[in-house]
């Protein structure tokens, strides 16, 4: 990917721990982690019970390799990585997708935003720039999710279910994900809305590759996520 010089203060980079949930991403994970660690040395990979050699790839790629012995879902994996990083003294927690759809330079801008104290949480916003980069079907689905959250969570965001996030340590300590599967992305929005933490949306580019699209959600998945989210809210 881009050989852009990502400029970020060394101590800021070291205080930022990047958490990557990994589920059957053996093909791409090594490259994603390598590029990331050129800028952010502390990368935590949580292998969520993959069966395709992801664990071996992850162990070779980063010293902070964690493994769920049983598949527990992306939300659970993020929370595991976050708990681990917090125990090791992380000052900021970043969420990053394993499939290579995010860009390191985008993450660096978001990290700076949190490190400078402009916000407690930075959320990636794929609609902040060139919207045509987002496939039309995806755009429609996500617009629906955005509208849904405007009502359900009472928070007006441009983009929801974007895997790129940066949280300050206090924010990460307050937000504990209990939705184990994909509904965590909805849960986190609720938690943010209720916490009163300062949120900033940072325009990012999602690189939609055939690989990432194949791994991504089918539109019916949106209903499943909504169902899990609503059940979770109803039952607490």
């Amino acid at each position: 990917m881009a050989e852009t010089a990502v400029s970020i203060d060394r101590s800021v980079a070291l205080g930022t721990w990047v958490v990557i949930p990994v589920f059957n991403e053996a093909v791409v994970i090594a490259r994603v982690v390598r590029e990331l660690r050129e800028v952010f040395p502390n990368v935590v990979c949580v292998d969520d019970g993959s069966g395709d050699g992801s664990w071996e790839a992850v162990r070779a790629a980063t010293p902070h390799a964690l493994r769920h012995l049983v598949n527990r879902g992306q939300g659970a994996a993020l929370q595991t990585g976050t708990a681990y990083a917090l125990r090791r003294g992380a000052e900021r927690i970043a969420h990053f997708d394993a499939d290579g759809q995010h860009r390191v330079e985008d993450l660096a801008r978001m990290v700076r935003c949190v490190a400078d104290g402009d916000c407690d949480i930075a959320l990636g916003d794929r609609f902040g720039g060139d919207v045509t980069r987002v496939p039309a079907g995806r755009r429609l689905l996500l617009r629906c999710a955005v509208a849904f959250h405007r009502v359900a969570s009472g928070i007006a965001l441009n983009d929801v279910h974007n895997g790129l996030r940066v949280l300050s340590r206090p924010a990460a300590e307050r937000i504990e994900l209990t939705a184990d599967r994909m509904a965590h992305a909805s849960e986190i929005i609720d938690l943010i809305a209720r916490s009163g933490l300062r949120v900033r949306q940072v325009p990012v580019t999602i690189d939609y590759t055939d690989y990432s699209r194949a791994k991504g959600q089918h539109w019916t998945g949106g209903f499943r996520i909504m169902f899990h989210y609503l059940v979770g809210r109803a039952l607490g």
Partner: peptide, 9 residues
């Protein structure tokens, strides 16, 4: 599973 993962690492 989370606690086990963190302890193992």
């Amino acid at each position: 599973v989370r606690e086990l993962a963190i302890r193992e690492a």
